[in-house]
Simulated scan of single mutants.
Amino acid sequence: MDQITLMLVMLALFQVKHLFADFYLQTPKMLSAGATYVHAGRAQHALVHIVGSFLVLLPFGLLAGLSWGLVVGLLALEWVLHYHIDFGKGWWSKRTAFTTTDAGYWRAFGVDQLAHQWTYIAMVWMAV
């Protein structure tokens, strides 16, 4: 598989993983207390993301020779970034009190999703 195809496949798989982890697998506990910094639900949500990312990276580790150290490093980076991106959105949402009927809510949601997608771009760049 050439490098550009590899990168595009990895990005596409990260996006599918993100869809499921962010929109199908979140529990009420994960969604609660978004503005609280230390929050077990957010930690669990970030863990769901890195389990999904491990499943994305696993075949590339076997096919492209990614080291286990790099895979573990990428997963740790994603966990930290995902946790903090979501905390930032929760903190901002509480501070502004925007609801789904406010444009500001959707802007914050969009910035949150953009930050997650940039995380995947960085992970792919580091892996390839």
Rank of each mutant, 00 (worst) to 15 (best):
V51R: 07
L19G: 06
P28G: 06
A115R: 05
P28N: 09
F23N: 14
Q117T: 14
G65L: 03
K89C: 03
V124E: 03
A21C: 10
Q117C: 13
F109C: 14
F14Q: 01
K94N: 15
W91A: 13
Y83M: 07
I85R: 00
D86T: 05
L25H: 02
F20L: 11
L81V: 09
Y105V: 07
T119A: 06
M30K: 02
F54A: 10
Y120V: 00
A40Q: 14
L47F: 15
V111R: 09
H82S: 03
L62S: 11
P59S: 15
L58K: 09
K94P: 10
W125L: 06
W79K: 04
L62A: 08
L25C: 06
F109A: 11
L19T: 06
R107C: 13
T27D: 12
P59Q: 11
G104E: 13
W79H: 10
V71H: 02
R42I: 11
V38Q: 11
L19N: 05
E78M: 03
A64V: 07
T27A: 10
T100H: 11
T100M: 13
K17G: 03
H45C: 07
L8N: 04
G52K: 00
G52V: 00
L57E: 02
L19C: 06
S53Q: 08
H82V: 03
Q44H: 13
Y83E: 08
Q117S: 13
A76H: 05
K17D: 03
V48A: 09
G90P: 05
V16Q: 03
R42V: 13
H49N: 04
L13Y: 00
H18W: 05
V72H: 05
R107N: 12
H18E: 07
H116C: 02
S67H: 04
M123L: 10
V16C: 04
V56E: 00
M10Q: 02
F23T: 11
P28L: 07
S67G: 14
V72E: 15
A33F: 04
Q44R: 15
W106G: 09
A122R: 00
Y83S: 06
F60P: 00
A35W: 01
I85P: 02
F54P: 05
V9D: 04
L77E: 02
Q44M: 14
Q113A: 09
T36G: 05
H116N: 01
D112V: 08
Q113E: 12
L81N: 04
M123R: 01
K89D: 09
F23D: 12
F109K: 12
L81P: 00
T27Y: 08
W106P: 14
W125A: 03
H45V: 11
T99C: 09
V56H: 01
D86Q: 08
W118M: 11
T99I: 12
K89V: 05
Y105H: 10
A21Y: 01
L70F: 03
W68D: 11
S32P: 05
L114C: 14
